[in-house]
């Protein structure tokens, strides 16, 4: 009940592993855009959620998918927390596994 009166955050943090980098993601902004803005070399290609290049694993926290991931991610990925960064908006602070060397 008291959560109704909680002030909503204007931004959230995403902690990346294994690099340990932390990025600030503005409310409503997608994870990929925030990462690129922070100078992180996140792999990406189409930026509209169709290629799957920017996929990452959300290991903690809540996200809101902007589109249906099931067209790009397979069944196993869907059930193990994978997300498309270009279509991911944060709902809380999150922990993300992403291989930046790709």
């Amino acid at each position: 009940m008291f959560s109704l009166f909680k002030k909503k955050a204007s931004s959230y943090s995403a902690t990346l592993s294994p690099s340990g980098k932390v990025i600030n993601v503005k409310k409503g902004e997608n994870l990929l855009t925030a990462a690129l803005y922070a100078g992180i070399k996140w792999p990406y290609k189409c930026r509209v959620g169709s290629c799957g290049t920017c996929k990452c694993k959300i290991t903690g926290g809540k996200i809101s998918p902007e589109i249906d991931f099931s067209y790009v991610l397979n069944f196993e990925e869907m059930n193990t927390g994978y997300a498309l960064a270009c279509q991911t908006v944060l709902k809380t602070d999150v922990k993300v596994t992403i291989n930046l060397k790709k």
Binding site: C46, V48, G49, S50, C51, I67, Y71, V72
Partner: peptide
């Protein structure tokens, strides 16, 4: 809408 995003852009 689906074809444009998932097919055309890719």
């Amino acid at each position: 809408t689906y074809a444009h995003v998932y097919n055309h852009h890719l």
